[in-house]
Amino acid sequence: MKKSLLVFAILLSFGSAQAQKKVFPQTPGMVSYTYRNSFAKNVPATLDTIKALGITNMEFSNLFGKTAAELRKLLDERGMKCSSFGVGYPDLQNKLAEVGQNAKTLGAQYVRVAWVPHKGPFTLDLAKQTVTDFNNFGKQLKDQFGLTFCYHNHGYEFETYESGTLFDYIVQNTNPDYVSFEMDILWTFFPGVDPAALIKKYPNRFKLMHLKDLRKGVVGNLSGGTPVENDVALGTGQLNLPAILKAAQQSSIQHYYIEDESPSYATQVPQTIAYLNQLK
């Protein structure tokens, strides 16, 4: 009888532990764009602020007047790192070697671009050119620098095409050896796509993720734009974060970064961190 009770107690304890398992066990990183105004004034102090939140992994999309070596030194002094380096499309077209060298100096594994230049709706012709460019950028970055190229979706790529979207076209026609993706969950949800379902559709193509939420009541579209005030703390907006994060944990995503474009980031980022910590 005692043995049965002991087994029952162990199983109950295991079940309770499983029930309390954190949905998001990682420590998130931070996109520099969240603190863009602060970085523009004082890079060292801003890094100190971010580290005080318990965050040591950065995705930089601006050097904020520093050289890559100077920024790397500031990170090293604080026990911080840069895992992803974001650049503009023209940088990849015109000075890819400089991009690759800067990324290596920063210690990044990934080079990310977040916008394909276009006017009006995104078209099939643009998607075809994008595929050619991405395969080219990715091959050069991998062959010359050992870096992984990622495209960060921004919403406009979800124009309908055949039985899917132009985003599907880009994923399916880029070489997975050279092209990976960073999912921005707001810019997946905003044009009407389920981020969790998209991760499950392409479980091996996403390597990075931007964590953000969309203000309740805001209706999305395919523009790729919304006022920055519509970024809200995780768990207070429209996105189904538990479902998205559960899908992400089963995928190839390596790094998660908080991005909050709102002017209220100083109060919202701690809320976001607290939300992630209590999500079970």
Score class of each variant (00 low, 15 high):
Thr148Tyr: 03
Lys128Asn: 12
Phe149Asn: 00
Gln20Phe: 14
Thr272Cys: 07
Pro117Leu: 01
Gln140Glu: 14
Ala40Gln: 14
Val171His: 04
Asn230Glu: 14
Leu11Met: 13
Leu5Gln: 12
Val43Tyr: 06
Tyr110Gly: 06
Gly192Glu: 06
Asp260Pro: 00
Arg72Glu: 13
Leu186Phe: 13
Pro25Gly: 01
Val193Thr: 12
Glu229Arg: 03
Pro227Thr: 01
Lys212Gly: 13
Gln20Arg: 12
Ser32Pro: 02
Gln268His: 09
Phe85Val: 02
Ser16Thr: 12
Thr148Ser: 11
Ile273Tyr: 02
Tyr169Arg: 09
Asn94Pro: 01
His255Gly: 06
Met1Glu: 12
Ile253Asn: 02
Gly225Asp: 15
Leu92His: 03
Phe14Leu: 15
Tyr151Ile: 13
Gly15Ile: 10
Pro227Asp: 04
Leu214Phe: 08
Gly120Cys: 07
Gly15Gln: 10
Gly235Pro: 03
Thr165Tyr: 10
Phe190Arg: 01
Met183Leu: 13
Pro90Asn: 09
Met80Gln: 08
Ser262Asn: 14
His152Phe: 08
Asp168Gly: 03
Val99Lys: 00
Ala243Phe: 05
Leu96Gln: 10
Val111Arg: 06
Phe189Val: 07
Pro263Ala: 13
Asn102Leu: 05
Thr56Gln: 11
Ser16Val: 15
Glu261Ala: 13
Pro121Ile: 04
Pro227Ala: 01
Tyr256Trp: 11
Gln271Lys: 13
Val179Met: 10
